[in-house]
Design a protein around this nucleic acid. Structure first.
Lengths: 136, 136
DNA sequence: CTAACTGCAAACAGTTTGCAGAGTG
DNA sequence: CACTCTGCAAACTGTTTGCAGTTAG
């Protein structure tokens, strides 16, 4: 099952790489409707799957109602606000990675491909001035 | 809107506290069908929501197709296997918490209610002898 | 040409909700 | 009694899939 070139898939990847960082399939769909008036949501999903298979895109299992996708890039972690749903990138941290691996090791597990999700309340929400809608 | 006693809700909470740790609404439903032959899935969801409101149960936003619930308990983190979906509890770790808070702080955020999800491949999957089905 | 890509619409899974009747306090 | 809880079934949301026509290599 080869993969051929597709104008739409290229644009989806470009969008993820340039415009925003964490987006839903539906957001991609809305962005590209103007460009491809006959675009279908099903096709966006199919192309996102292909891009995930090619490891050009990550599907983030962050919970919530919609799946979230981001263009693949350097090691980093995610801080997710439990209140407004914002997803904030954090740079990779050797110290944090080491602590996490150690903790998992103590429970008899072993870890490859470590990735961390840190949940809490973001500073905007704490001060009450957070944006009105979650970034999705 | 008061909350009254409900035999079924009590049993749901008991199940979560005793039988297993991380379960889906559907699993709860299946467990209690024998006991309550006319039980409905909708009611399981309603009661889980009530228990979450009462902070007796946590709803874990772990992604995947189904929501996952666990009885509320001491601080701990979750190690989630990206391959088999197993959710493994890890004890709280001051060192890990401190590293995480520091990393978030460096990005200008601030954190309350820190909870961590560590993703990777579990040891069973690495050695190829993991259970056949994800724990859900 | 062959097989991948596409739009469309239907199917699907998990969750939520409106209703009328049963149960709690 | 008043008002919550319940089963039932329908509605909803997000995602996947079957089909026939279009397009890339």
């Amino acid at each position: 099952m080869d993969v051929r070139n597709s104008v739409q898939r290229n644009r989806i990847l470009e969008l993820l790489q340039q415009e925003r960082i964490h987006v839903s399939a539906h957001w991609v769909f809305d962005q590209l409707r103007g460009e491809f008036p006959r675009l279908s949501l099903g096709n966006v999903y199919r192309n996102l799957h292909i891009l995930v298979d090619q490891k050009l895109v990550h599907r983030l299992p962050l919970g919530g109602t919609r799946d979230v996708y981001e263009a693949a890039r350097d090691d980093h972690h995610h801080f997710i606000c439990d209140r407004c749903g914002a997803i904030i990138d954090l740079p990779g941290s050797d110290e944090l990675s080491r602590s996490a691996r150690e903790l998992v090791g103590q429970s008899g597990g072993s870890v490859s491909q470590l990735s961390l999700e840190i949940r809490g309340i973001c500073s905007s929400c704490l001060t009450g001035e957070h944006r009105s809608e979650p970034v999705r």
